[in-house]
Nucleic acid binder design. Structure first.
Lengths: 339, 339
DNA sequence: CTTGCTTCCGCAAACGTTTGCGGAGCATGG
DNA sequence: CCATGCTCCGCAAACGTTTGCGGAAGCAAG
């Protein structure tokens, strides 16, 4: 039961006042060079570590930022958590990781808790139901940047994937290989990403002079189960699609299973393209072609933006929107259509 | 720029002293029922939220616990993060997630930072190089429980997978199907899990009266590259193994790739069993048989143990060791050996 | 020797809570 | 009517910092 050593102890050992000790350790040149050095030494010898609570109470700045995501299995969120954590730490911040399971209620509770903790900032993938809460946080001096998803009810700094372009590029890739009937398994249309990925798909189709067929798209949650359901539905048609475009990596897993169920071989019998890359896709067989949504870059940018606004000369929350470009990665799961 | 409402404001509005306000909101029956209700109401109306910093400073208890893992891509760590976070929150704690990349230096820094934040407890997968630091934390009243890996330099509460039994069960499963040459791809022998998984493998072999052949095992980091290298090495032998046992899910990815390189079909040409389950394995084709190391249960137990020691009537750090049983899940990637 | 300027440091207040101690009010029992 | 006990509340100190303000030295110039 070590009695933790406080600033008073350091000051007493150095025979100076607490204030001098504080200033010396802060090192802003507020004390003479000699006392500064001396106190640094004594503090080190005593093993002094400042109490962040007390400091935070006084300075109104814990160096904590909240990071809230839906889960950690989704690839975007996983890399988001990893790189944000790393970037923040490099700048002396700590990440407070929270998981909402995409549930507005949990999200609200989480945000409140984080506010109570007096986090300096917040990076969040919003559900879209707590805009007011977020906005008031941001307005009251705790910068909030949204990522991956946009909360449409409110104006906040947001960094997103270039989903329309990504989906466009992906379906266009399939079209160029001769595919005409392309099944799309996409996210719920209440979400930005769901809508945008669908719209990119449509645009590519229309440009190619192909009528949009709504029965070729299956929308649902980003889970393997929707992939499976969508796959079954699409495969049951008389005019079976020659290619499938799964709009996220988890639904692609379901598609894989669905194909296996019916003994449909990839890529011989059908082509599969997937939105979002994940290590397993590169390693498995056949390797899955993807359009990489740029989760890494997105995370980096989100961290950058927030850190920017965390600096002393903070610009007053510019509610900008940033887009991260997508990138097609060709592997083995798509091939030209046979005729 | 809202001026945050403090306890003083509530007290003033209710025309009582700050202390009464504090007690009323705490609700321990230290005030009359009526004032308690009245203050609850007023606090709610004013939107009062207690300042956790001030509270922590006074009570010497933030309700924060550090959670430090090597990364988030490894399945064990991912579910660890998810379930620990969930369990903690259910009890009113917040998780402070840190990532060390299995680097002792980053780990040391992380631990210090967490100590500075005055976390109430720590759940950590240790590198094994900062035992002293952890032990002193634990001794000074901040319970530390290790998970997944044991820090052998020191006595701390630890919850581990039953690796020897798991590996034993897995290779035994293969043996029962007639396999005699079983290639093992395993973790570095400096880690507990690496050694224990190897020892389980050996024991099963010896029980079956098969001589242990060190050239059949390939040890390395838990990464796809290790799996690939190991796979190549094992496949280059004249007497090629009839089954492969990949001792973690990431190396299994490498094995998959290695097999594909040489056009070796699963499970017709060779069997593959994998330690650690991961959603993709169940969905992909052929579905990979695994021995599930029980990451979920491990995480639950770790959280339980720590929470237990966090309770007021805290038992003085019992440095126990807990083991989580493994479970064989048969899917499609292993089959009886052909003769 | 006084004046004025610089450099360095100490005093004390403040941040927003919690909590030991004691006091006021009131009822109860002798 | 007094002693006693109980219930409820306020005073003030404390947790460990940071920081505005003022004062003590030191030194140079007049």
């Amino acid at each position: 039961m070590q009695t933790t050593v406080t600033l008073r102890d350091v000051a007493r050992a150095a025979k100076v006042s607490v204030s001098t000790a504080s200033r010396a350790l802060a090192g802003g040149g507020l004390t003479s060079k000699s006392t500064e050095a001396r106190l640094q030494r004594i503090a080190a010898e005593l093993g002094y570590r400042p109490n962040t609570l007390a400091r935070g109470l006084k300075t109104r700045s814990t160096r904590l930022v909240g990071l809230v995501v839906h889960n950690l299995t989704n690839a975007s969120f996983r890399v988001l958590a990893e790189v944000v954590q790393r970037r923040l730490r490099a700048e002396g911040y700590q990440a407070l990781l929270c998981i909402t399971a995409d549930d507005p209620e949990q999200e609200a509770e989480t945000i409140e808790t984080l506010a109570d903790q007096r986090v300096d900032g917040l990076i969040i993938c919003p559900t879209g139901h707590n805009g007011a809460l977020l906005a008031s946080l941001d307005a009251s001096g705790t910068p909030v940047t949204c990522v991956v998803r946009r909360d449409e009810t409110v104006e906040l700094e947001t960094v997103l994937a270039a989903d329309p372009e990504g989906a466009y590029a992906g379906t266009r890739h399939l079209l160029e290989l001769g595919h005409r009937r392309i099944g799309l398994i996409v996210g719920r249309q209440e979400t930005t990403s769901g809508r945008e990925r669908l719209s990119g798909y449509r645009r590519a189709l229309e440009e190619a002079g192909i009528a949009f067929d709504p029965t070729l798209v299956h929308a649902g949650r980003y889970e393997p189960e929707t992939g499976l359901a969508g796959c079954r539905q699409l495969l049951d048609r008389d005019d079976r699609p020659t290619a499938l475009f799964a709009a996220n990596h988890e639904s692609a897993l379901g598609v894989l299973r669905g194909l296996a169920e019916r003994n449909i071989a990839l890529p011989d019998d059908i082509s599969l393209l997937c939105y979002e890359d994940v290590p397993g896709f590169a390693w498995q067989r056949p390797a899955i072609s993807v359009v990489d949504s740029g989760a890494n870059a997105m995370a980096e940018l989100a961290a950058d933006r927030l850190l920017q606004r965390l600096r002393p000369n903070a610009a007053p929350s510019a509610a900008g929107e940033y887009r991260i470009g997508a990138r097609l990665i060709q592997r083995q799961s798509v091939r030209p259509v046979a005729h």
